[in-house]
């Protein structure tokens, strides 16, 4: 079957790609567009490692088909820093040792940014429930929660 031709906006720039019908947005990002910062942990929407935003909405890119993003605005981890300036969340994750292996980190950061866009002053409990869809097996979540709360504080002051 012929591939689909899709045009979209990716991290602020126009992008076009061809994809098979069954290819997920995750596969398109990784295999067709060489953006491997978005990770596959389960491909069933259970781990959050592939979190991106589509049209401003937080999604698991493994649950979205490539063909579905025609005309949409996609944001991935590769677009999080502004040039060489890290996003406060990225900076706080580093300062708080909030990553060990780092495989969940891109998804965590994207999900946390989505939270702070909606709720600039979350409680610890709100952070924990918002990030409940993003699995981390290394950190026990302490330092991730600390880093998100610290970044929220800094962003409010900015």
């Amino acid at each position: 079957m012929a591939k689909h031709h899709v045009t979209a906006t990716l991290n602020g720039s126009p992008v076009e790609f061809l994809c098979e019908t069954q290819q997920t947005l995750l596969e398109v990002l990784r295999d067709e567009l060489n953006l491997t910062g978005t990770k596959e942990g389960c491909a069933t929407g259970d781990c959050g490692a592939c979190s991106v935003t589509v049209g401003g909405r937080l999604v698991c890119s493994c649950l979205v088909l490539g063909a579905e993003v025609e005309g949409k605005r996609i944001e991935t981890i590769e677009g999080m820093a502004s040039g060489t300036e890290l996003h406060p969340l990225q900076q706080k994750f580093l300062e708080h040792a909030a990553l060990q292996c780092g495989i969940c980190t891109p998804g965590m950061l994207i999900a946390a940014r989505s939270l702070l866009e909606r709720k600039p002053d979350p409680t610890e409990e709100e952070v924990r429930y918002w990030l409940a869809g993003n699995l981390c097996r290394c950190t026990g979540y302490n330092k991730i929660v600390d880093a998100v709360l610290a970044a929220a504080g800094e962003m409010r002051r900015a």
């Binding site: 953006l35 999080m80 950061l109």
Partner: peptide, 13 residues
């Protein structure tokens, strides 16, 4: 650290 928060670190896949 930095490549791991920017998505540039290369894992097995």
């Amino acid at each position: 650290g930095v490549p791991k928060v920017t998505g540039l670190a290369q894992y097995g896949a």
